[in-house]
Design a protein around this nucleic acid. Structure first.
Lengths: 257, 257
DNA sequence: CTATGACCTCCCGCGACGGGAGGTTCAAGC
DNA sequence: GCTTGAACCTCCCGTCGCGGGAGGTCATAG
C-alpha cells in the first residue's frame, strides 16, 4: 500500500508524453512558449513534471482536441479566478466558429458538386468549358460582392430554367441587332439605337434589382467588362473587340436618349 | 474601335493584382514557387504579364477558392494533355476531403454542446466539474481507441439513463463493501472477497463487450488507472490511495478465485 | 567500462502568404 | 528636362503547431 497518494510523484518528459498521448517535441514546444513548463529540473537540466503539471497538460490536450489555439488555452488556464465562466464563453465562441466553418464547407461542397455536374454534362459545345467556367467564376467573385452574387442567383431562380433560357435567346437577338446597327453605320443618336437600349436595359432589369443597389451591380458589371473583356468574351459567341465596340455604342445611345 | 483584340495587351503586376482580386505579394509568391511567372520583363526588371498569364491566374484563383493547394493546382494546370479528366478527379478528391472535414466539425460540435449542457447543469456537486471532465476526456482518448469509446457509449445508451444511474449506485455499494473488507483485514482469499469480485466483474460486464475485445478494453482501463489513478480519482468520491489499494486487493481475490 | 537509450539545446522546415526595409524605375505635371 | 510621388524591385523575418535532425550530455543495466 502506498504511503502517501500520488501528489509527490514526478514524471520525466518521456513518461509524461506517453501518459498523455503527446510527443516530447510538443512538450518542448509548450515549454518554449510558456504554456507548460516543468515545475522542477534535475541538476543535469532534465525536466521533472509534477502532478499539477500533468493535470494542466490534460486540460491543454482536451481543449486542443476541441480545436482551440494554444494562445486561447493559455488565456483560459491562466485567467485564474473565473475558470468556469470564461471556459463557457470560450466553448461558446468555438461553437460559433465551427458553425461558420461548417457553413463555408457546405457552400464549397455545393459549388464543387455543381462544377462536377456541369463537367459530366456533354451538352456544352466547348470541350474545356470547365476551365472557362472556372475563369469566369473568379472574375465574378472579384468584381461582385457575395451579396450581389446572391441577388443575381435569386433572380435567376425566380425566372426559372426556361425563363433564363428565353432571356439568353432574347439577349442574343439584341446583341445581333445592335451589331447590325453599329456596323451598318447607324448613329448612336438614331431612334432605332435608343429603342434598342431601352429593350436592353429592360432585359437587364429582370436580373438586377431596382434602385441604387441595382445600379451598383450594373456599375460593377461594367467595370468587370472594361477590365476583362477578352476573358469574359471567351464565354460568349462574339469576339471581344466587337462586343467592346457594341458596349461603347450602347452607352452613347443611352446618353443620347 | 480597337484594332486588334486584347491578345497583345500587357499588365503590370499591380494591374493584374487589381483585376484578379489578389495582392502583389501573392503574385510574387506564385513567381517564387514557379506557379505563375510573368512571360516578360521590362529592361528594368519589372514584370509584364500577358493575357495567357491572366487567364492562368484566373484558374489559379478559382481553384484556390475551392480549397485546393497551390501544389495541386500546379499539378493540374501543368498536367497539359488531359485537363478535363484530371480536373474532375481533383475536384472529386476535394469533395471527399470536404466531407471528412464536415464530419469532424460535426463531431466537435456535438462534444462542445455536450460540455456546455453539462456546464449549465447545476446538479453536479463540484464547481469546477467542467475542468475535471476535460481532464478525464483527455485521459480517455489517450488510453481507449475511438472504437472502444464508441462501444462503451453504445452500452450506456442501451442501458438507458436510469440503468446507468442504477449501475453507479450499485458500484458505489460494491466499492464501500470492498473497502470495509479490506480495511477490516479480511484476506483476499476469503470467500466474501471472491464473491465480491464476481459481482464486481458481472457489473463491469454490463459495460464491456464479451470476448477478447472486452478483455482488451478492460486491460486498457487497468493501464489507464495505473498511470493516472490520482487524476481519475478526482472524479470519484474516494481518495486515490484507497482506490489503488482496493484495486490491488480485488486483483488478488480474482487470482485466488 | 561500455553500450544503449533518454534527455538536452539549437536550428531548419512546412503552407501561403503579410508586411517591412531599402533601393530603383516609371509616368505625369511643370 | 526635372521633380515628385506612386509603383516596382529584391531580400528577409514572422505567422501556427509542431516534426525531425544534429551534436552533445546523462542515467542505468550488464
Amino acid at each position: 500500500m502506498v504511503g502517501a497518494d500520488d501528489a509527490g510523484r514526478r514524471w520525466s518528459i518521456g513518461e509524461l508524453a506517453r501518459a498523455s498521448g503527446t510527443t516530447v517535441r510538443a512538450l518542448h514546444h509548450y515549454d518554449e512558449i510558456g504554456l507548460l513548463s516543468a515545475s522542477e529540473r534535475t541538476d543535469a537540466g532534465h525536466r521533472r513534471y509534477t502532478t499539477r503539471d500533468l493535470r494542466r497538460l490534460y486540460r491543454i490536450r482536451a481543449l486542443r482536441a476541441l480545436g482551440l489555439s494554444l494562445e486561447e488555452i493559455a488565456g483560459v488556464l491562466d485567467g485564474a479566478a473565473d475558470d468556469a465562466e470564461s471556459m463557457r464563453a470560450l466553448l461558446a465562441a468555438q461553437l460559433r466558429r465551427l458553425d461558420e466553418q461548417a457553413e463555408l464547407i457546405g457552400a464549397l461542397r455545393e459549388r464543387i458538386r455543381g462544377l462536377l455536374r456541369q463537367a459530366g454534362d456533354p451538352s456544352g459545345p466547348d470541350p474545356d468549358r470547365l476551365m472557362t467556367t472556372l475563369e469566369l467564376m473568379s472574375v465574378f467573385e472579384t468584381y461582385l460582392t457575395e451579396e450581389q452574387r446572391e441577388r443575381l442567383a435569386e433572380r435567376r431562380a425566380a425566372l426559372g430554367g426556361e425563363g433564363v433560357e428565353a432571356a439568353k435567346h432574347e439577349w442574343k437577338g439584341l446583341v445581333e441587332e445592335g451589331l447590325r446597327l453599329l456596323e451598318t453605320g447607324v448613329p448612336a443618336e438614331d431612334e432605332r439605337a435608343r429603342d434598342l437600349v431601352r429593350r436592353w436595359d429592360a432585359l437587364a432589369g429582370r436580373f438586377h434589382p431596382r434602385g441604387p443597389e441595382g445600379e451598383r451591380t450594373r456599375a460593377a458589371v461594367r467595370r468587370m467588362w472594361q477590365d476583362n473583356s477578352a476573358e469574359i468574351s471567351r464565354g460568349l459567341p462574339w469576339p471581344a473587340e466587337r462586343m467592346t465596340a457594341l458596349v461603347a455604342y450602347l452607352e452613347q445611345a443611352r446618353q443620347a436618349g
